[in-house]
Amino acid sequence: MVGTEKAKKYTLIVIALAILVAAGIVLSIALGRYPISISDIIAIVSGGGTATQRALFFNVRLPRILLACMVGCSISAAGASYQGVFQNPMAAPDILGASSGAAAGASVAMLLQFSGRGIMVSAFAASLATIALVMAVSKAARGNKLLGIILAGIMLSSLANAVSSFVKLVADPYDTLPKITFWLLGSLSKVKLSDVPLAAVPMVIGLVPLLLLRWRINLLTLSDSEARTMGVNAPRTRVIVIICATLITAASVAVSGLIGWVGLVIPHLTRRLVGNNFKHLLPATCLLGALFLMLVDDISRNLLITEIPLGILTSVVGAPFFLWLITRKREEY
């Protein structure tokens, strides 16, 4: 039957990615300043190991690695979703301003000494407001739609960054300022075990509808009238997708700060592997995003004696990729 060869290839790729993620988790736990051997890991998981090893495993490495996977998965899925609903291959949480908006919301919440959950809510509200403004501005802008939305995103990102900068200016220089500054650079070095469920709840709430609606995201890449004649209410579906993508972006930013480019690069790499159909694209993007950010985080904590913030490393990878994307000859994605 037609289509089955492609489905088979997709299944193989997804299984391979899942195995790589699982292997990556074990490897990442083993790696670090205080190495834990594979046999130690087995001992710890089955209840053994020394107290130091157990503390290191449960309080430091495991939460950090899980969060790297969750954040990588979320911002990649958000990027792919934004690209679909805005019909724009350059769309990504950081380019549209969703990340900067979340960062502004979170830094204000940190300044006001909100709890973890308060930071999460504030990040989501600010992020959603930024995306709504980007949509309104790009709708009013004349000319090239593709460019309009990117320019609106750049403009509102810089406005949101101004808010974050102002927060830094007035923050307590001995306590809040270093915390906000390091977090804004994009880092998972300060995460705690309690951050895992805190981030997991909004991420699951956002990702599940995206995965369920993923076939319909395909129709949002056509015109709204066309989608409607095929039985899809495009404006309503688009709003649901945008809210979900923004929620998982905000949850990611609240725990890990600004990690740029992943939401742009990973969906495009995945398109090369499995094609444009969101039925295949979205799950594969989630897995590849998790794998990628986990490996970059391994580099971040193992390459030098001092930790390199994740955001710096992802920019080193992402910026050249973006240049390639805008300069290549064929205008197809």
Partner: peptide, 15 residues
């Protein structure tokens, strides 16, 4: 915007 396969483009009609 996106280069769907001919098959996927036609498959959208069955939504």
């Amino acid at each position: 915007t996106f280069n769907y396969s001919v098959f996927d483009m036609a498959l959208m009609g069955t939504t």
